[in-house]
């Protein structure tokens, strides 16, 4: 294990998270089993009060896990100097491959957590909290993710040994690299550019239509399309967007753009992409919750805000991607 201040901070945070999670999952379980909105017993009253506590704890834990994802990426990226052969986060993650699973887990938690916070927000703003049971069932579904995230993070950091020689992004994200990363890097550039830009266009179009249409179908489509766009965007970043930032036609790494060498451009890039995707998904998820009249009014208001935010963020993301393509002297014509 490496006694790095960033690692100690992450692990301390993780321990606090575990303690809070165990407590709130227990209460969540009791609420699911005993909740009865029509009852006026003392037990129901105390459960109603406890929902406030669990909501606060969960908002705290989820906000924390989003922050810890950023800190995790930055720590892992900064740690590459400790490993022979590593040049960015890829190298540090390869030093103990469990790190990759920890990263995937953190990304899934980011999406699930955002959905939960949104559901909780709707529930608290609507009279007689119609979504209590649903939100606590969702909470119990997220808990195992959080636990495994913490477990993987511990295993990753405890298993790091600085004398391991790791392979770096140059060999993993290259056409010869093999595996999924190699396959993504090998995607032909020109068709990928068409797919990427047309899917951004389609997404923004559908989202705009959903602003003016009251049909449920188009809102679900927005949510679905957000997921599709997210996957295409990640593939495009590896396939051609990163190349424009590096100005090297063979370097496909999705992590190097997070470094100061490239003005930390990766942070606004990923934050706008992730944010835009989340708000797009929420538009679809919100549609599925319109079960009563009160909820429908509440959700309709929010959906509008979410869709506009999503369109704005995705546009920012697209602009960041386009910027180097137009303003740098580097072109990918030959490839």
């Amino acid at each position: 294990m490496i006694l790095h201040p960033g690692i100690i901070a992450l692990l301390t945070g993780a321990l606090i998270e575990v303690a809070l999670l165990i407590y709130s999952s227990y209460i969540g379980l009791v609420i699911i089993m005993r909740w009865n909105a029509n009852s006026s017993t003392e037990e129901q009253l105390s459960l109603e009060r406890k929902t406030y506590l669990v909501s606060t704890i969960m908002s705290f834990v989820l906000a924390f896990s989003i922050l810890s994802t950023l800190l995790f990426i930055y720590t892992v990226d900064g740690m590459h100097r400790l490993f022979t052969g590593a040049m960015c986060a890829t190298g540090s993650l390869n030093a103990n491959p469990v790190g990759w699973y920890a990263l995937y887990m953190k990304i899934s938690i980011f999406f699930l957590a955002s959905i939960w916070i949104a559901v909780n927000y709707i529930d608290q703003r609507t009279e007689d909290s119609p979504l209590v049971k649903k939100k606590f069932i969702l909470l119990l579904c997220i808990t195992p993710f959080l636990f495994s995230d913490i477990y993987l993070q511990f295993r990753y950091f405890l298993g790091l040994k600085p004398n391991i020689i790791t392979s770096c992004c140059g060999s993993l994200f290259s056409k010869e690299g093999g595996g999924m990363a190699g396959g993504l890097s090998g995607l032909p550039t020109h068709p990928m550019e068409y797919i990427f830009f047309s899917s951004i266009f389609i997404y923004v179009f559908i989202a705009c239509v959903s602003l003016f249409s009251s049909k449920g179908f188009i809102k679900y489509l927005t949510g679905l399309m957000a997921i599709v766009l997210f996957i295409i965007s990640l593939a495009s970043i590896i396939s051609f967007i990163s190349l424009y930032f590096y100005e090297i036609p063979t370097h496909h790494c999705p992590f190097d753009i997070l470094q100061g060498h490239y003005n930390y451009i990766g942070y606004p890039l990923y934050i706008s992409l992730f944010g835009g995707t989340v708000f797009g998904i929420l538009t679809g998820v919100g549609e599925g919750l319109k079960k009563s009249r009160l909820l429908t009014i509440q959700i309709n208001n929010l959906q509008r805000k979410w869709t506009i935010t999503s369109i704005a963020l995705i546009t920012i993301f697209a602009l960041i991607c386009i910027y180097p393509m137009i303003f740098s002297s580097f072109t990918l014509e030959g490839y």
Binding site: P5, G6, I8, A9, L10, T12, G13, I16, A19, L20, L53, T56, I57, F60, F64, L67, S68, L70, L71, Y74
Partner: peptide
Amino acid sequence: AVLLFLTVIPYMAATI
């Protein structure tokens, strides 16, 4: 950020 994780987050957690 590291400092925040080591001080403010434990404090917030303790007061919830």
